[in-house]
């Protein structure tokens, strides 16, 4: 790892000042991806601005909406009692990220700002039609995620929270990469009522995407059978040593069914 200056501001405004000032700096919120990347010398920021000092964590459940602060760890999301009642699938998703040690450090803000195409959270945000609250603005999840490792965030913009509308029902099914345990395919389904169903797929493509044909079918009939036979085009899907695009496309169907079947 190349050396860097380490900062741990306690106020969001200070964090913003620091990232503005250090053009080659990087924000860190858990470091579960950034630290290994720096260790491999694939990233060499001059300054690290560690956001864990902001104390910006916690889950707040209201009647129709849940706010998860950006610094909330996956373990905290997974075990939050109120959230388990409001959006149980979000807890289950967080409880399946990485391993227990990663879940104790990694945060929702860090995860979505990194936008790894195989990360779990992007599927949840898109399917749940979440809103990302940044230090500058509010953005819908659809607009926030921009393809592989890219988001709408500007360099000095910090994710502060994610707001999730509480759906009638939602479910997440993940097929983990056997080696890395990242999502090889993950499908999040959410029934928002009144025929509004959203289906988001992670791991399979260059970034999270919506499976519109399934959304349509599920809007009419929210059942596992409804997605049977709905194919996902393999053309744009990822290929690697673990899974061909064709296999991934197939798994999207299987995981979608399982997500619907398990939706609560």
């Amino acid at each position: 790892m190349h050396d860097f200056n380490y900062h741990r501001p306690t106020k969001a405004a200070d964090a913003q000042k620091l990232i503005k000032k250090h053009k080659d700096g990087a924000l860190m919120s858990g470091g579960m991806t950034l630290v290994p990347t720096m260790k491999q010398r694939l990233a060499a920021p001059s300054d690290i601005i560690d956001l864990t000092g902001l104390g910006n964590s916690g889950v707040k459940v209201l009647k129709t909406k849940v706010t998860v602060h950006a610094g909330t760890t996956h373990a905290e999301v997974a075990t939050d009692k109120d959230l388990k009642k409001a959006i149980p699938s979000l807890c289950a998703l967080a409880g399946g990220i990485g391993d227990p040690h990663v879940r104790n450090c990694g945060t929702i803000g860090g995860s979505i700002a990194n936008n790894d195409p195989a990360a779990d959270y992007p599927a949840a945000l898109v399917a749940l039609d979440a809103t990302v609250v940044t230090s500058k603005r509010k953005l819908s999840a659809d607009k926030f995620f921009k393809g592989m490792f890219e988001t709408a965030l500007s360099r000095d913009e910090i994710v502060m929270a994610v707001e999730f509308p509480i759906p009638d029902k939602s479910g997440y099914a993940k097929f983990p990469n056997p080696a890395s345990r990242y999502a090889m395919v993950g499908v999040y389904v959410a029934d928002h009522g009144k025929g509004n169903v959203r289906v988001a797929v992670t791991g399979a493509g260059a970034g999270v995407f919506r499976q519109k044909a399934m959304e349509k079918a599920l809007s009419a009939d929210f059942s596992a059978n409804a997605v049977s036979g709905i194919a996902t085009k393999a053309d744009d899907l990822n290929e690697d040593i673990h899974a061909s695009a064709e296999y991934r496309a197939h798994l999207v169907g299987v995981m979608a069914k399982r997500a619907v079947a398990g939706a609560k």
């Binding site: 579960m32 630290v35 560690d50």
Partner: peptide, 18 residues
């Protein structure tokens, strides 16, 4: 793996200063 403030973490992925 060590415990930091009671939580299990990977000491190879935590910065000492943090």
């Amino acid at each position: 793996v060590v415990h930091v403030d009671g939580k299990a973490v990977k000491a190879c992925t935590a910065l000492a200063l943090a």
